[in-house]
């Protein structure tokens, strides 16, 4: 869960930054740069979110019971 907390500490300043940008009239070039940034961030989140959740869960299980990749993904009981 520490990983999560660190992640949140990055997200909130980013949001505050985007709020402070509200009054700025950005040039076309920087607008395009922002939209590129957002679309690549979106792609990263789209394909990275689920692996991230699985990794968080996997790392939180106790050491003696760390499931392997097959048992993580298969619906069959592994006990």
């Amino acid at each position: 869960m520490n990983l999560l907390k660190i992640g949140l500490y990055y997200i909130i300043p980013l949001l505050l930054l985007s709020i402070t940008m509200a009054g700025l009239n950005l040039s076309e070039e920087s607008k395009e740069r922002f939209s590129n940034l957002f679309s690549s961030a979106q792609t990263i989140v789209h394909y990275g979110w689920l692996p991230f959740v699985i990794y968080l869960g996997w790392s939180s299980t106790s050491n003696s019971n760390k499931p392997n990749l097959v048992s993580l993904l298969s619906p069959l009981p592994s006990a």
């Binding site: 869960m1 999560l4 979110w49 689920l50 991230f52 959740v53 699985i54 968080l56 869960g57 939180s60």
Partner: peptide
């Protein structure tokens, strides 16, 4: 995939058309 404790909940769902709900 769901991971949750008293403090946090993280959930992700992906379907056969690759649409993600997080």
């Amino acid at each position: 995939s769901i991971i949750a404790n008293d403090q946090a909940l993280v959930q992700g769902t992906i379907d056969n058309e690759f649409s993600l709900t997080g």
